[in-house]
């Protein structure tokens, strides 16, 4: 398999955990909150999903369990921030650490076990197309569903009243309350949605993308997703584009290592993180200039 084919086949799958977590967080931030616990919520989702799939053999159960447990974790964040008005940054970080710790605890006895991934599905005979057919257009079911969901989310946020309400609640909560919207409740739903998305993202990472559980396997993807929201300026399309870009980058790193490019592997593995920082700098500079 050539480097290009490798990239085409793997980019979407590599981007998927980032995409889902970032879209979830985007909704949370649009509603006016900031949950920094993505990394932990993804980790606990990943651990739970692996455990469920290992015991039941059903990926559906795995994804469902991951979403449920990550949502619960997110609701703990909501209870702190919306319920008792705790500091968001501190609460988010605490939730993140808690999630990482719990994932390690639950996953301990499942390390080095293996499970089946998901079969790849071609898209309605389009897999006959040369080059992209067997690579880009042959993906597992989660990828196809997630792409549909990304469009769905765009539609909800930009074309429906629900999207308008979420934006309004985030922009001016006092005004939203004054005209009769239940601000706390809407934010609670947003946080729950963000948690569920992180859970699914983690589940994909541990049961489909690399079907195994290892402590620390999320490896900073939660933080990259957080940066992607800012990079994408809270717009669905741009966030998705950013996730793809990082998917390519993380695969490119593997390709480069495989091709034996003369850089230490540590430098290559740090590339996505380095680019994250670079992008945040570029964005804030652009903001300063337009100011």
């Amino acid at each position: 398999m050539s480097g290009l084919e490798f990239l085409l086949a793997g980019t979407l799958a590599a981007a998927l955990p980032l995409l889902l977590a970032a879209l979830g967080e985007m909704v949370v931030e649009k509603a006016g909150l900031l949950n920094l616990g993505l990394e932990g919520m993804m980790a606990i989702g990943a651990a739970i999903a692996f455990i469920c799939v290992y015991h039941t053999g059903s990926h559906f159960v795995g994804f469902l369990g991951a979403a449920a447990v990550s949502t619960l974790t997110a609701l703990l964040f909501a209870a702190l921030v919306i319920g008792v008005q705790a500091n968001q940054v501190a609460s988010g970080l605490a939730i993140g650490v808690l999630g990482l710790g719990l994932s390690a605890l639950f996953g301990k006895s499942y390390e080095s076990l293996t499970i089946q991934g998901l079969p790849k599905l071609g898209l309605l005979g389009l897999s006959e197309i040369p080059l992209i057919g067997p690579t880009l257009l042959t993906q597992d079911i989660v990828v196809w569903v997630s792409i549909g969901m990304t469009f769905g989310l765009w539609w909800v946020l930009n074309r429906t009243k629900l999207g308008l309400v979420i934006t309004a609640v985030g922009e001016n909560p006092e005004a939203a309350r004054a005209i009769g919207y239940p601000v706390s409740l809407i934010r609670l739903y947003a946080v729950a949605f963000g948690g569920a998305m992180c859970g699914i993202a983690g589940a994909y990472a541990s049961t489909v993308y690399t079907p195994l559980w290892a402590d620390g396997m999320i490896a900073g993807r939660g933080w990259i997703a957080l940066a992607l929201v800012v990079f994408g300026t809270w717009q669905t399309g741009r966030v998705a584009f950013g996730a793809l870009l990082f998917g390519i980058l993380s695969l490119g790193e593997l390709t480069a290592q495989a091709m034996g490019i003369g850089l230490p592997s540590q430098v290559l593995s740090s590339l996505p993180y380095f680019v994250t920082i670079l992008m945040l700098v570029v964005i804030s500079r652009r903001k300063l200039r337009s100011a």
């Binding site: 308008l164 934006t167 309004a168 922009e171 001016n172 006092e174 005004a175 939203a176 004054a178 005209i179």
Partner: peptide, 11 residues
Amino acid sequence: VFQHFSLFETL
């Protein structure tokens, strides 16, 4: 009608 308007500026 509120004294400090309850409008959303970006909309």
